[in-house]
């Protein structure tokens, strides 16, 4: 697979405050990539740097082999984006808005505009002023705007903000269709986990301007192993082998571990042999949400 987007040690400092610290990742062709993080973590800043709205303090961003820093026009040609809310010219109609953006790219035919309008399902209302549109319709017009020039990379910042569940579902289907039929890569940012889990192939967790984790969503779904929370007394003597042999994660009241059911007695026996008091062992359904909270609270605690 080839990388459509690569961030290389990207740093951003605003008035002496580091906003983004040494961020590196890449997005593959045809992949839906999620940027997840609490508000203020640097998701929007990262996205703005990719599309060139904000300059880089250090590092570089490569889109389709072209540097955003050195070759902005060539690089950004391959990107379609909605940054935060899709703000349009309210005094123009939907169609006039699309024409505005079509004129700024090379070779967008009238047919192409109509095709995109059809795709996002705005055909009936396209000749009405954007002022009269609902938020959902503006989102769809925003999506139409970034599909006009058939970009290789679609960047959507908080795309489902303000959409109702049906709208979110529809939006998700759109994305799937685009990546599968056109081979587009998509970057989606959100602070809503459940949504990201359903939408993305891979999710990066950003916190305080640093990449804390990248996960394949499929890993969770395909995994036969279950996660168990073992409530125990002090673990000081056994921490070493728990970590090495079982890859345990420690929490306040004990630890969690991801194992097959048959292995549970084995683990418990070994704990009891080591004179660890075991109070309970229960199966927990581990979602990305828990993983996310784990990662983020861990970092917060470290402060």
């Amino acid at each position: 697979m080839s990388a459509v987007l690569t961030l290389e040690h990207v740093k951003k400092t605003i008035k002496g405050n580091p906003i983004i610290n040494d961020l590196s990742f890449s997005v593959q062709a045809g992949e839906i990539f999620g940027l997840l993080g609490p508000n203020g973590a640097g998701k929007t800043t990262t996205i703005r740097m990719i599309v060139g709205l904000i300059g880089l303090t250090d590092g570089d961003i490569i889109v389709s082999g072209k540097s955003v820093k050195k070759n902005f026009e060539e690089a950004v040609k391959n990107i379609g984006a909605i940054v935060e809310n899709p703000e349009m010219y309210k005094h123009l109609t939907g169609y006039q808005n699309l024409k505005q953006y079509a004129r700024m790219h090379k070779g967008i035919s009238k047919e192409k505009i109509d095709e995109v309008i059809e795709l996002v399902g705005l055909t009936e209302r396209i000749d009405e002023k954007v002022r009269t549109y609902s938020l959902g319709m503006r989102q769809r017009l925003g999506l139409a705007q970034c599909l006009l020039h058939d970009p290789k990379l679609l960047i959507l910042d908080e795309p489902t903000n303000g959409l109702d569940p049906a709208g979110i579902r529809e939006f998700r289907d759109h994305l799937r269709m685009l990546t599968e039929t056109k081979g587009m890569s998509v970057i989606v940012s959100s602070h809503l986990l459940s949504e990201m889990e359903m939408m993305c192939d891979r999710i990066a967790i950003i916190q305080q301007g640093t990449l804390t984790d990248i996960q394949y969503v499929r890993d969770f779904v395909d995994n036969d192993q279950m996660v168990y929370l073992i409530e125990t007394g002090p673990l000081d003597n056994v921490k070493n082998w728990l970590q090495q042999d079982w890859n345990a994660t420690f929490v306040d009241s004990g630890f969690t571990v991801s194992v097959n059911k048959e292995e549970v007695p084995l683990l418990l026996n070994r704990l009891i042999d080591s004179k660890v008091s075991v109070y309970s062992a229960k199966e927990i359904v581990k979602t990305l949400e828990q993983r996310f909270l784990e990662v983020t609270t861990h970092t917060n605690g470290g402060l």
Partner: peptide, 14 residues
């Protein structure tokens, strides 16, 4: 003020 600058400046135009 309308926020449209974001959609304007992400075009392949300096």
């Amino acid at each position: 003020s309308s926020g449209t600058i974001k959609l304007l400046l992400i075009r392949p135009i300096s």
